[in-house]
Amino acid sequence: MASVVAVIASTHHPFYYRASTATGEDRPPFADEWVSKITAFRETLTRARPDVLVMVGSDHFHQLWLDNMPQFLVGKAPFYDANWYNEEREFGLPKMLLKGQEDLSAHILRAGLDEGFDLAFSNELRIDHSVTCPIITLRPEADLPIVPIYTNIFAPPLPQPKRFVQLGKAIREIVESWPSHLRVAIIGTGHLSLELGGPRQFGPHGPDPEFDRKAVEWIATGDLERCLAEVTLDSLHSPGNATHGFMDFMLMMGVAGAGAKADYVDSLDLFHTMEAYFTWYPSGAPA
């Protein structure tokens, strides 16, 4: 069976690409520290020597729209074009082309449906920065085949937080039941406290540093019990109006498993939002 060699949860910051490649006067003062932290984070994936990446993210009203909005969707295609005109315009993100791993997509869809998750699918999916940001930070060669999984954290009504956790747990079991010798890393990106288009946006820190502190603690210690006790669809409005993206972190806590302490934890307090990076090695830390 396939082995899950790394579980990685991260924020996805669309400004990283531009900040890390800027030079001279255009280079922001925080860029060097950010690049240093990302370089160390990248090594946690490289060391696991993955063959395939399962990538959990959320479409930002690019391909998925309110006339036909899935809650959870699995891509099943041989290729995925990536990044959109408005991401190039606002963030300077490059157009990309990623390979797909269709056998694993098919396995996740079949097993997921059989486990009670009515997963939507797409045979022609153009992915956005929720998936390409972690490719840029963690695997800039963009050479590994992927299975993208999209969640709806964006367009209410949303699934409950516990459903994200349940799906994460199921994804872990399903990948481990894939009849393959390949080494799989499961990577998901979300947000800590975040405000977009509201009065608390683009402050000197994230809109709710206290939430961020608690969230990092929950994730780092695998404390799903406390996290699920405190986080509801209603409560997530308080830390910032885009904080429902935290549910993708909760999904990744489900992948890592209840009580699973992260093997690698780092964060970076930036303007606008806090960055956070976590890696678990379910089969033990690689040599």
Binding site: H60, R89, E90, F154, A155, L196, G197, G198, N241, A242
Partner: peptide, 12 residues
Amino acid sequence: AHPFLTLTLFIA
């Protein structure tokens, strides 16, 4: 209106 949509377009 969805704040992400408004913000993205108005930034543009």
